[in-house]
Design a protein around this nucleic acid. Structure first.
Lengths: 213, 213
DNA sequence: ACCTGAACACCGTTCAAGT
DNA sequence: ACCTGAACACCGTTCAAGT
């Protein structure tokens, strides 16, 4: 986990991990069947930190709480966030959040099929909201510096676009390039989702097409 | 691209691609500087299919159209969807969609900072909505069969959970396990986002915390 | 129960060389 | 301009063996 946090997922390697543990690469295969199992265990470790909120009965509040609980668990390990999507239905914490989301969506008036899809979409939303938050090496100043340089290059590239074609991007190059997911931003993204669920349920409900207002 | 569609991203390998082209691995390095450039080109190829919708002036309609345009481009290549996130700001089509999203969010009443974040979050939503849609090998029946088996196992695992703890998951195991992103589902996810943007803007607008109703 | 060592089939990539 | 060949440093993993 320290390895992944410090140097990114790409650094999580049987051989590098073994070296970090002062052991032979093959030693890991006693504790774990395959590398996939190892990274799954990593994701599970992240999900272990999920504090499942208790139900209040207000589905909006409950859905928001479930998503924010996931966000809170992912926050310390943004590098590992993309991994947890595949583990949500295999981990008790992930299952609890899925259960909560599913019930909230049903309570909002969505039918079982859309609710099932939206539940997973909801949790994925929380995941993407924190993904790519911090770059690869947030620890050492070298990585941070390089990341900062890349941001500046990106921002400059946006600012240099033809303003007649991309006026908004040029005007707000800084905001677009550095759209880091602060707590307020992530909370906003969650809010957008929750609010949208209510609106969509209010006008479409069960099987109706979502386009007709 | 055919390789990625048929066997998944993991099969996209310098050596395998070279073999498929009947050429030496090193031959590729004449046309491409690095493997990362190669997969970036792959993502760009997907974005080439984006048909940028014309503006109507109604930001809700325009935002929905932009997201659906991205969805339409990603649909034929769900395996490659996760790649395009990193290319959105480097490709004309992606830039056009980003520009459109940014303007819509500003028009909805969001300040430049939240709008910048939400614009990228919007496009990521479209991406996740189609991601993992089809498994790895949708072509050969062997892969399809294996995928079907995995689905069934997943569904059975959900159905076998303690019903007192996960009543909704147990009751709707089928819908959760097979939450494939049909067109209607993806449209619903887009609708949830668009609706949420309006709701959040209506009550929070510029800098206010998103939690207070 | 836990680890080592040698080996295998695969990676991406460099660099000098061919035509 | 485009491709080859040999080489290097890295992968995940098997399998037999040690203690």
């Amino acid at each position: 986990m320290a390895l992944a946090d410090a140097e990114g997922l790409g650094a999580v390697t049987v051989r590098r991990l073994a070296a970090a543990l002062g052991v032979t690469p093959m030693a890991l295969y006693w504790h774990v069947a395959t590398k996939d199992d190892l990274v799954a265990a990593l994701a599970d470790r992240v999900l272990d930190a999920v504090r499942v909120p208790e139900e209040t009965g207000d589905w909006e509040e409950d859905l928001r709480a479930a998503l924010l609980a996931l966000v809170a668990a992912l926050r310390p390990h943004p590098q590992l966030a993309p991994l947890v999507a595949d583990r949500l239905l295999e981990h008790p914490g992930g299952l609890a959040l899925s259960e909560a989301a599913l019930r909230c969506l049903a309570a909002a008036g969505h039918g079982p099929q859309p609710a099932g899809y939206l539940a997973s979409q909801a949790l994925r939303t929380a995941i993407t909201a924190v993904t790519g938050d911090r770059p690869a090496g947030a620890d050492d100043p070298a990585g941070a510096q390089e990341h900062e340089a890349r941001l500046r290059r990106q921002q400059a590239a946006l600012a240099a676009l033809p303003p007649d074609r991309y006026p908004a991007l040029v005007a707000h190059a800084a905001e677009v390039a550095r759209c880091t997911g602060t707590d307020a931003h992530v909370a906003l993204a969650v809010d957008v989702f929750v609010t949208g669920v209510r609106g969509a349920a209010a006008r479409g409900a069960v099987g109706a097409g979502p386009t007709a207002p």
